[in-house]
Each structure stands twice: as C-alpha cells, then as structure tokens.
Design a protein around this nucleic acid. Structure first.
Lengths: 353, 353
DNA sequence: CTGTTAGCGCTTTCAT
DNA sequence: ATGAAAGCGCTAACAG
C-alpha cells in the first residue's frame, strides 16, 4: 500500500486535514507548516490518490472523448482529421490539468455503452463528442443527464441547449463552389462520405446554394457519396461517363481527395488540366499530394481546442452560456485547380492563374 | 447526488453488502434475491460509482497510453501509425472491459508528468508505452514502481524485465534492402526520422547487414535523417548530387515516403523508372499514393492489440512471463520499385517485373 | 491557523 | 444466504 495522507500527517506531526490543506495550498496554513509538510511529502514520496479525491469531490478532472464512429475502419482513427482535433483537445486539457479518457468501442452501441459507463460511473466530469449524426443516442443521453459536454460539429436538434464548435460547413462548401464558379466552372461535382453525418449534409447544401446565387441550375446527379475507399473508382467512373462531365469536383475529406486523384490518374485524366479538385481539410496528406491539393482549411486543431475550452468552462460554471463557436475556414489554393476560359467548357485554351 | 448502493438496498429490503454481491454476481446469493435486487437497480437507474470501487479495490480497469512524442507536431498524433496502434489497443481493451486514458502532454517532460500522475494517482492499472527511445524517463519509472506495462517497440535496456511487442525491425530493414539488392540495386539510400528512436537504429543496422551478407561495402553517406517535412527536399537533393547516386531508397515512414516522392517529382525524377522506393508501414496513404508505394507492412493494429493483451495479462497475474512478441513484417510490393538489369547501373535497359 | 470528525460509495471480512 | 461493520484515502465542515 502506498503512502497516504495519514502517514505524512504522522511523520510531520500534524493532522491529516492540515496535509490536505497543504496540498491544495490553502491560505489558512502558515508558510512554516507548509514547508515542513511538503518536505515530509517529498521524503516519503507521497502522491495523491485520485480515486479517493474523485470520490469525495465528485470530480475527476477528466474529460471523455467520443471518437467518431464510421462504418469503415480505415476512416475511424486513421482519420487524420480526428487526430488533429484530439491534439487540440489534448493541448487545452493539459493546460488546465485535465486528463483524457477515450471511448474504445467500435460500433455505435459499444460507444454508447462506453459513454454511459464514463458518465454514470463518474469517471469523467464532461464529454466531448466528435461527431454529430442522425439517430445518435449519445447526445440525447448527455442532455438528459445534464452532463457538461460539447460537440465538434453541428448538432441536429436542440442546438441552443448544446455547446458546439464547428466550421460553417455550408458557407465553406459555398465558398469552395463559388471559387470554382468564379473560375468559370459550371459542371461541378460533389463527393461526400457518410451522408448521415450532418456535416456532409451542410456541405451539400452550401454547394447547392452557390449555384443558386449564381443563377445556375442545381443538379442532384452531380452529388455522389462514397462509403468505402474502394468505391472511389466507381464514383469517378460515374462522373466521367456523364454527357456533361464535371470540370471540377468538391470533395469532403483529404483521403477521398487523394483517392479521387488516384482514380483519375489511373484513367489518364490529368489534374488540374482536365479536372479541378478542391478538398475539405488541409492536412499533411493534402500537402504531400502531387499536385498539392487546393483545400478548405477547417482548422481541426483549433476545433478541438475550443471544444475542450467550452466543456471546461461549463464544468466550472454550469450556467455558462451554451455558445456555439464557429471556426472560420479558409481556402488554401494549391495546384489542383485551374481557371477555365469564359466560354466555359474549353479545355484546350487554358488560362493559367 | 446519484442513486447509491444504499438506496437500492433500502428499496429492496436488503443490506448494502447484498446489493454489492448481486453486482458482482456472487454465487452465495440466491437467484430470487438477485432478481429482486436487479429489478430495483433497474427501476432506480443505479450505476456503480467507479471511483468508489477503484478506491476500495485499488484497481480502475483503466490502461494509460503514452503517445509517442516527436519534436515535430505533424508527426505526433497525425502519425497514422500511432492511430492504428491505438485502434488495436482499443479493440482489445474493449473486449476485456478496460478503459483507456491517454497522455495529453506535448513535451517529454509533460508526458512524464502525465505518466506519474496516472500511475501514482492510481488512475490506471497498467501502461502501454508507444515508443522506445534513448534517455527516456518513463520506462525506468514504470520499472522502478513495478507497474504492469508493455512497450510497443524495442526497449533499449533491461529487455528481459520488460514485456514488449515489436517487429523485428532489423530483419525488416534487411529484408527490404535484400529485396532491392536482389533486383540488382547497389547504390541504396536509407532515410530515417529521429535517430534517437531505437526503431530507426535497428533499421539502419538491418540495412547495413543486407550489404554485408551480400559481400557489399556499407557506406554511411547513404544513410540520412530527416527531422522535419521541410528537410525532405534537402535530403533528396543531397542524394541526387552524389557521384554514384542511389537507384533505390529505403524510407522509414509513410509520410516521409510521400514527401520523398514529392521531392523527386518536383525535380523531374520518375519513380520507379529512375529510382525505386520502399517504405516502412503500409497505411492508407501509401496505398493512395501515385504510384502505390512498395511497403514493409508492420501490422500496426496487431502491435497495439498484442501490447494491450500483454499488460492485461500482467495485471491479472504479475508473475506472467515478460515475453516479447515479434509481429512479423511482410513486404507488400507496390508500384514504386523496379528491377535493374544485371549490369546494375543501367537505367535505360529496364526489366519490368 | 490547526485539529476533530464525518462521510464520499463501494467492497469485504466476520458474524449469524 | 444474508447482514453488520470496518475501512479504502481523501476533503470539508465545524470547532477551537
């Protein structure tokens, strides 16, 4: 059994409560006693038992993080976006002395079970949910139990009861589409992953909006979803056999971006000469790609950082206004897009920007 | 305050200890009582307070995971390898009802602090260390405190006191180099990241060994280290200005692989026509690369899975033999290598395999 | 400023 | 088969 507060108290000739007060650096304790006690703590190698503290304080200074669930394993943690968000969360948590516990489940039900255990078992003081999707049980549960939490992404319901951090995905997709329209593209495709995630829906909407604002026709046949990396080839194929095939694509993840690039390459279609690409999330892999992908930087690290900030504020003061933070996105021009000439379908007469 | 075991006891007209026994499904309790108590637990919505249990049982069923520290942020969690290992750990932990707590620190000292807090604070029952490097304080600390732990990677000291899971990195690098030598390459470069990690040192050694076994000269000028993605161009440049420039490269991470590919592309050097590439770790990004990279698959998921298995066995039985598990690597031929003709430096007369 | 006391919610002997 | 009671290590009134 390890050294306890009692051992320290005895050795220092004080009461356990005094030791406790020294630990919390209470100002009701004389410097002299503090020094004495601290010396003994050092000598004995005392360390607070955080379970005991957690039990009495009803707080563990730990945040639970729900990692995004995706049908396809390769998009789960392998997802660089998630990793970056997690780094942002870590950075903020570390500053405030919070620990991080992550879900281990790999199906939605397992993850829900993890959350229940963490919350009801009082293992965490708050939660961060890394996704917002339809038919999700986690967010309603957290709401019901009145647990401090924040969502990275846009909740689908009860938005004003929930603190969340997100990009304006609709605006971002609109910006991206605008960016292409301004460069005279008219046939623009959209490729998204799991459409049950709200983020994808918002992006589709923004994509449509850009068309409308330019007085152009929206066309659902230009919007496609890819559920596994293997499907990318098929989707690209579908686009290529269209009568009016797209001259540009808006793509919702870096991995998909690279996948599409690959599928196009295999078919001898050159980027950006024959088709332009703009991809969500600037990550190492979009930077490393050949050509460098033009991206919409969503500031994943910042997203995580702010989410953590939000929950911790909420923990410290449950009456904190449930604000929603919108992290601005920015188009980062790479080498994967080009401008078409005015008579928009010309592929030969290229204007290099 | 939430429902406690006492509330349940009262409502069910039994003693708290009986409720506790029902929770642990003790065989000294009659089925009848069990049913009755369980019903009440359900009705009241009882959930075990895991802090309290942790306090009395001196165990939290939680594993701490030390995420690999790297000077460069982009290689930290962004590292797909780490993500995959973490998935493997998660999968096994979930099976055995263990939770995962991760370190939040971003410098070596911060991480060490995290570990001390987790361990001394009795937040975790065991640890998994995701790296093995020189001058590391974490492993000696864990050893000193006799905490159950396992290392993903090869420890540098006291190997027989430590349970670890690793690839045979020396063998893997030797295999990769052999693979190239057999295809008539003679000028083969090696690019690694942080050489303070043991894994890199082993790989360098394996690389040398392949030369020796083929009766060829080893040459340290063909071994280079890259610390930041920006340096990749410079290193490639160094190789290209050598009198006898390499016809092939062995590269220690996927990200570096893609980086090198990019640097070569920028300089108009074609892969695999002018230079062959073989890269450690088969990940999504090596698969997505154009051309698909020839890789040495290190089975990251499996590495994590086995590491978790090891610690949990150790926790359940501290006398478990401190075995080391070697996960076999396998060369996955992609499109980034080619075979040279017998008179090895010929670049024009290519043999396509 | 410091000591005494009473729990936090659970498990675990020891009785019965 | 079940209950009573002690205690895990800590904090937080309440005294003094």
């Amino acid at each position: 059994m390890a050294i306890t507060i009692k051992d320290v108290a005895k050795a220092a000739n004080v009461a356990p409560s005094t030791v406790s007060r020294v630990i919390s650096d209470s100002r009701h304790i004389s410097e002299k006693t503090k020094k004495k006690v601290r010396k003994v703590m050092d000598e004995l190698g005392y360390h607070t038992n955080l379970n005991a503290r957690g039990l009495v304080q009803q707080s563990t200074k730990t945040l639970g993080v729900v990692l995004k669930y995706s049908e396809s394993d390769v998009w789960k943690l392998g997802n660089l976006f998630v990793s970056e968000v997690l780094q942002g969360i870590s950075a903020h948590c570390h500053q405030y002395g919070y620990s991080i516990m992550i879900t281990t489940g790999s199906t939605e039900d397992e993850i829900y079970g993890d959350v229940v255990r963490m919350v009801q078992g009082k293992q965490v003081d708050g939660m961060i949910v890394l996704y917002a999707k339809k038919n999700d049980k986690v967010v309603p549960f957290l709401l019901d139990k009145a647990i401090p939490f924040s969502v990275v992404g846009k909740p689908l319901e009860r938005m004003n009861e929930i603190m969340f951090v997100d990009n304006d995905n609709m605006q971002a997709a609109k910006d991206a589409t605008d960016f292409l329209i301004q460069r005279n593209h008219r046939q623009i495709g959209f490729i998204g992953d799991n459409p049950t995630f709200q983020v994808i829906q918002d992006r589709v909407e923004g994509y449509y909006k850009a068309f409308e604002e330019h007085g152009l026709q929206r066309d659902a046949s230009y919007v496609k979803f890819v559920h596994t990396p293997e499907e990318e080839g098929a989707v690209v194929e579908e686009f290529l056999i269209m009568e009016a095939k797209p001259t540009a694509l808006v793509i919702s993840t870096p991995l998909q971006g690279v996948g599409v690039l690959k599928a196009l390459h295999k078919r001898g279609i050159r980027v950006p000469d024959e088709i332009s690409l703009i991809v969500f999330n600037k990550t190492l892999i979009t930077e490393m790609s050949i050509p460098v992908l033009t991206t919409i930087d969503t500031e994943a690290f910042q997203l995580g950082y702010e989410a953590s900030k939000g929950v911790i504020e909420l923990i410290n003061n449950p009456n904190t206004f449930k604000r929603s933070v919108i992290i601005p996105t920015k188009i980062e021009p790479g080498e994967s897009h080009r401008k078409l000439t005015e008579d928009n379908n010309s592929v030969i007469d290229v204007t290099i920007e």
